[in-house]
Every structure is written in C-alpha cells, then in structure tokens.
Amino acid sequence: MSQQPINIQPLSQPVQMPEGIASFSPEIEAEIDRHLAKYPVMRSAILPLMFIVQRERGYLDPPGVAYLAQRLKLRITDIWEVATFYSMINLKPVGKYHIQVCKTLSCKLLGSDKITQVCAEKLGIKVGEMSADGRFSLSEVECLGSCGTAPMFQVNFDYHENLTVEKAEQILDSLP
C-alpha cells in the first residue's frame, strides 16, 4: 500500500545526471554493501565508496559519480563537494602508477627534492602531470607519516622509504 517504496528523486538530478551510470560486478556490489552496513547513515560511506569506484574505474569519472549519487541517494553536487575536498579523490584521470613524493619538512631536510627530480627526469613528466601512455602520474604531496624513514614516496598505496636516488630509480624500473 502506501508503504510501497517511493523513490524521492534527489533534486533535479534527472537533468543533472551525466550520461550513463557505472555498474559493478556482484562481488564489488557486495563489498560496497559491507561498507554501507558499517554506518547508520548511508552518506558516511561516501569516502570508502569513492575509493572503490576509483580503484575500479581509475578515477571518479562521470558515470562513477552518477553511480555514487544514486547508490547513496545523494545529489550530484553532494558527491562533487566531497570529492573536490579530499586530495586523494581524483575527478581527473591519473596514471596506472601514481608516484607521490612527500615534500614536507622532514623529507625535505633529507633530500626529497632530488627524489622528485629524478622521478621527473626518468618519467619525462613534470610534477602534476601524467605520462602520455597513462602509465605514470607524478605528484608532490604533504607529510605521509614516514618522516623517520625519509625521504620517501608512495606508489599508489605502497610506501617506499629511506629512498636514495638509486633506490628510487630501481623502484620505478621494477614497476611491471
């Protein structure tokens, strides 16, 4: 009867929705459900879900954004305002390997500049750029909590610490 589920369209989304909505495998959907189950309020799962969409689609592309809005019953602007606040959420494509060199003081003191420099030379891109083949992105980021093992960079989520120029080069070379 009137208890039947009625869907209160998040405002003006019909027009605002980007073309196409991302869809995911049952496994991923299950993973997403597990996250949603943690919170009394759906919206709380927005960051975990953004990471999943990024993992699956490379970045938060329009279909991914549309998916999140629909899955979390939010407005498209809600996704946007959150996505743009957090530096780890990408609304633009990033390379398969995202090299993030820590540039904050402790690493700086121990020569993070050189690390950035060698990465830039090796990959042939400037900080903030993505290589033409889409394999690499290079960023300088703020303190990643390995000041005691500085200098360091993160390749996607992996920490590489106590770097030297040579070590950095090896790591870049060793990436499949």
Partner: peptide, 27 residues
C-alpha cells in the same frame, strides 16, 4: 529551496562556489 543545487567545492584558498560540471540545474 531544499535544492542543494549550488555548493562549495575544492579546499582552502581554491574553494569555489559551483556545481558538478559547472552547470546549474535548479528552479
């Protein structure tokens, strides 16, 4: 209006008022 059509995006001194895709769909 209960529309939430326009919001703050970005962070710090880059914060701007806007919408996803830059186009405002609302009443």
């Amino acid at each position: 209006m209960g529309e939430d059509a326009i919001e703050a995006g970005n962070r710090g001194s880059n914060t701007v008022i806007g919408t996803y895709g830059g186009w405002l769909n609302c009443s």
